[in-house]
Design a protein around this nucleic acid. Sequence first.
DNA 1: ATGTCAATGGGGCATTGA
Length: 257
Amino acid sequence: MKIATYNVNGISARLPVLLRWLAEAQPDVVCLQELKAPQEKFPLKEIQDAGYHAIWHGQKSWNGVAILSRSADIKEVRRGLPGDEEDVQSRYIEAMVNDVLIACLYLPNGNPAPGPKFDYKLDWFRRFTTHAQMLWEEDIPVVLCGDYNVIPTALDAYKAERWVDDALFRPETVEAFNKLMQQGWTDAIRKLYPYEVIYTFFDYFRDAYGRNAGLRIDHFLLSPHLNKRLLAGGVYHDVRGWEKSSDHAPVWIEVKD
DNA sequence: ATGTCAATGGGGCATTGA
């Protein structure tokens, strides 16, 4: 089973690129973030014509997440991150696809930091970590994937020293990520490529893609049952260079069926 | 502060978020 994650930065603006990439990559499961579309504006017909079932949680203007599946055996488990009834942002959706629990997340960016947005990021991260612990204890195949808005280590950013005051690489953010990892999850891409510079995001500014000035902020965290099935993975780097592309590139893993 | 996208309201372009 090939599982991918892709921050599309607006599914309406990105639809041609998304459909082209789906046809080329043929992933079995896709987690999408930043739909930037209300629930009723999700392009379900086009996604179905491409061969996918879909569940999604939209929101006007911002955020929005979806899970696509070639298999009809997709069952939504929850939408919305538990732990705060007041939180109205669409950043989390979870489904069982065949025997795998797929968690699709769009962790808050948090800039500018410090400030209320950074506080929200850290609080969201705390709630997510609590939920992840619950999933860990279920002792089943789980993948937590999406746009974490976290640079885990200095290897994961072009000129990391420039990012130390940014919400994506501040000590509080890295510490929150490490705390999550201490539950035992495996960072699939880092496991496959322990020392390589791998980026999943390139800013639209100043030709960041052309200069390879990127960040690795889209991640796959695997539970032990799924980790032992991990076969391969990587980044669809070229997609970031397509006309009208997102500022993120799709990332994928292959796990044994 | 800058740079570039996408969505919004309102019908051009400023504002917001990333």
